[in-house]
Design a protein around this nucleic acid. Structure first.
Lengths: 210, 210
DNA sequence: TGTTTATGGAACCGCGATTTAAAAAAGTCA
DNA sequence: TGACTTTTTTAAATCGCGGTTCCATAAACA
């Protein structure tokens, strides 16, 4: 790794690039220029180049970048060159939708278990994924080698869930419960709030600079 | 507005504050200090104060900020002091989950219509929200006064959907289809990609600085 | 061989974040 | 009640880093 310490905004864009490059691959495109990428993403070409330069020199001057090579490099950086096993805690509407979400598998994320406290839901099988009772959390995390947990429980249950996850072996949490969560005891956390996404949208709608 | 031009990162945090303040209100807390907010969010207290100072002086020295007042001010800035009417295009698992998502209404977002091309889905009623055929898009957008559209179609349909939205009166799009969308013709766009959220998480899991 | 295209690196810029200092309100104790 | 301490905001100054601009270099193409 030539240049450690990649800025967070760059990491975000790398994901965007990776997605775009996958699309290009499926279209048979083998080379791409920073200008084309920038145009597609609404960015400055120089920024694209700088982003891609964080992990080496992959471009051919006057020609562009090899899509396949970039895909592999970015995957390595983001950690998606391997497959990650997911569990979803809370199998309400959103939880079940995530469990069955088709966009995960192709990007290296495999849902393998669901958890709930509701006896009506425990025992079900969704797209081949079993729903366990929350009591069995630690046991199943170990046996199923679960890396990442997605939480979609009501926010009142969030603290309790996190408590159970500590020491369970889970290393990452994607939190959809409507309450902000901080990283704790080596468990990486990323908060997603769908209402906030809408709020950010209404902000830009309300404060148009047109 | 004392100080126009609020930086994007600040706008993001404002949403976080707003959510936290709502929680505080329901707990009966009336005043809060920047230090407490910062602690909860994992931020620097000075940053919290600077964020809150972008739209005026609301704090009482030696005491803190009035929660209710801040909530109202932030709502005004984010544009959520009014209610926004939503439609969801694409009523697969994710689309239906969003249509029924309980977290929207309390934050000022009201789902009022769903759209699909599948005859099996058209005509259904979910939580009192009617599913229309996609053919009726423009008509229903007008009659139902829809402000914002959430797209959860397959990515192949995305361009077609956007084409139909231009000139429909919709002013904002929250895009869950797995393809990056740029703002076009005055329609504000925000892209959400669930796989990217996981990728950002695996990045921080892979590159722990512990 | 000359022209065009596009990368890579250096220099520069600006702005968001942090630090520091000042002021004001609240709490404390004689 | 009045001085003294503590708390916490506000304002100003500084810092650092992400983004942009500029230029040199090299590969492709005509």
């Amino acid at each position: 790794m030539p240049n450690r310490k990649i800025p967070a905004p760059t990491v975000n864009r790398l994901s965007l690039y990776l997605k775009y490059f996958s699309e290009l691959t499926s279209q048979g495109v083998e080379y791409i220029s920073s200008g084309q990428v920038a145009e597609k993403m609404g960015l400055n070409p120089a920024q694209v180049r700088k982003d891609l330069a964080y992990f080496g020199k992959f471009g051919r001057r006057g020609f562009g970048y090899g899509v396949e090579q970039l895909k592999q490099e970015i995957s390595k950086i983001l950690g998606t060159h391997r497959q990650w096993r997911l569990a979803v805690i809370g199998t309400g509407n959103l939880g079940r939708a995530l469990l069955m979400y088709q966009g995960f598998l192709s990007r290296g994320f495999k849902p393998v278990a669901g958890f709930d406290v509701d006896p009506d839901k425990v025992g079900w099988e969704l797209d081949g994924v079993h729903i366990y009772h929350f009591d069995e959390l630690e046991k199943v995390i170990k046996s199923q080698k679960i890396d990442i947990v997605i939480i979609t429980t009501p926010k009142a249950s969030l603290d309790g869930v996190m408590e159970r996850l500590k020491g369970s072996g889970v290393k990452g949490v994607l939190n959809f419960a409507g309450k902000h969560l901080l990283e704790a005891e080596g468990i990486a956390v990323r908060n997603v709030d769908l209402a906030i996404e809408l709020e950010q949208l209404t902000f830009s709608m309300t404060n148009k600079e047109s």
